Amino acid sequence: MFPESSGYFSVPHPFDAYISLWPEDQALPDEDQLQSMKSKGMQLMSEVKALEGDCLIHLRQLGDDGRAIVEYLKLQSRKVDLVLQHLLEQEARDGQHCIGLQFGGSGVRLQSEQALPRNAQVKLLLFVREEILSVLCLARVSDCREDPDNPERYLLDLEYSVITEAEVEQLVKASLVVQQKQLKQRKSSR
């Protein structure tokens, strides 16, 4: 688990991640520089997510009258998100592919073929397919240990170091949605 001081909980859920070590002699980028490092597809996805989030907040204030409109716009938004996700999946990925095990608003846990030194900075690209979420950020390795279930792999805990507020918000929302789905599944399987 991540430290309690992180401020956000994390949820176990599989996802894809790509990591590459950030050069020690290179300063960490600021949010604007991080934004310019994103592919066109990721930039589009970020803009669409921000716009739809703002729009849905305003429409929900309409109450019962706006419910049908909100549902219709959610459907339209989902279609746009699926097309953008398909485009993102076609883009080349740099870095080592890792299996995502857990994510939240403060960091992620990955399973990796490679051990990484604690406190190393990495460029992290993550994709939570079910929630149509893609994030590019920098993260610090807070822990690295052998995976007890698979001794040929390592468990990496990463805490975000450079990430936009909008993407933290998206990660938090996605983790809440995933947790809700998991609770419903548990309840129905009883």
Results as ranks from 00 to 15, higher is better:
residue 1 M to H: 13
residue 2 F to N: 12
residue 3 P to S: 15
residue 4 E to A: 12
residue 6 S to A: 14
residue 9 F to V: 11
residue 12 P to A: 13
residue 13 H to D: 14
residue 13 H to A: 13
residue 14 P to I: 07
residue 14 P to H: 04
residue 17 A to H: 03
residue 17 A to R: 02
residue 18 Y to H: 07
residue 19 I to H: 00
residue 20 S to R: 11
residue 22 W to H: 08
residue 22 W to V: 03
residue 24 E to C: 09
residue 28 L to E: 11
residue 29 P to T: 06
residue 29 P to A: 06
residue 29 P to K: 05
residue 29 P to M: 06
residue 30 D to C: 10
residue 33 Q to K: 12
residue 34 L to D: 07
residue 35 Q to S: 15
residue 37 M to N: 06
residue 37 M to K: 10
residue 38 K to E: 13
residue 38 K to W: 02
residue 42 M to S: 07
residue 45 M to K: 09
residue 47 E to C: 12
residue 51 L to N: 09
residue 54 D to P: 00
residue 54 D to Y: 08
residue 55 C to M: 15
residue 55 C to P: 04
residue 57 I to G: 03
residue 58 H to C: 08
residue 58 H to Q: 10
residue 61 Q to M: 09
residue 61 Q to Y: 06
residue 62 L to W: 04
residue 63 G to Y: 01
residue 66 G to T: 00
residue 67 R to V: 09
residue 69 I to W: 01
residue 70 V to G: 00
residue 72 Y to Q: 11
residue 73 L to Q: 03
residue 75 L to K: 15
residue 76 Q to D: 10
residue 77 S to G: 05
residue 78 R to E: 13
residue 81 D to M: 13
residue 82 L to Q: 11
residue 83 V to E: 09
residue 85 Q to D: 10
residue 86 H to I: 11
residue 86 H to E: 14
residue 87 L to N: 03
residue 88 L to K: 02
residue 90 Q to T: 09
residue 91 E to M: 04
residue 91 E to S: 04
residue 93 R to H: 06
residue 94 D to G: 12
residue 95 G to T: 05
residue 96 Q to M: 14
residue 98 C to A: 12
residue 99 I to N: 10
residue 101 L to T: 02
residue 102 Q to H: 13
residue 103 F to G: 01
residue 104 G to M: 04
residue 105 G to N: 02
residue 107 G to C: 04
residue 109 R to E: 13
residue 110 L to Y: 03
residue 110 L to Q: 02
residue 110 L to W: 03
residue 110 L to N: 01
residue 111 Q to A: 15
residue 115 A to N: 04
residue 115 A to L: 08
residue 115 A to H: 02
residue 115 A to Y: 00
residue 116 L to N: 08
residue 117 P to E: 09
residue 118 R to K: 14
residue 119 N to H: 13
residue 120 A to E: 07
residue 121 Q to K: 14
residue 121 Q to E: 14
residue 122 V to Q: 04
residue 123 K to N: 14
residue 123 K to M: 14
residue 124 L to M: 06
residue 124 L to G: 02
residue 127 F to C: 09
residue 129 R to E: 15
residue 132 I to G: 06
residue 134 S to A: 14
residue 135 V to A: 02
residue 135 V to K: 02
residue 137 C to T: 10
residue 137 C to I: 06
residue 138 L to Y: 10
residue 139 A to Q: 03
residue 139 A to V: 03
residue 139 A to K: 01
residue 140 R to S: 12
residue 145 R to C: 15
residue 146 E to Q: 14
residue 149 D to N: 10
residue 150 N to K: 08
residue 152 E to H: 08
residue 153 R to K: 11
residue 154 Y to A: 07
residue 157 D to N: 15
residue 160 Y to C: 01
residue 163 I to P: 00
residue 165 E to Y: 05
residue 165 E to R: 09
residue 169 E to G: 09
residue 170 Q to N: 08
residue 171 L to T: 01
residue 172 V to E: 03
residue 173 K to D: 09
residue 173 K to T: 11
residue 173 K to F: 08
residue 174 A to P: 00
residue 179 Q to R: 12
residue 180 Q to Y: 11
residue 182 Q to G: 11
residue 185 Q to Y: 07
residue 186 R to D: 13
residue 187 K to I: 13
residue 189 S to P: 03
residue 189 S to F: 09
residue 190 R to E: 15
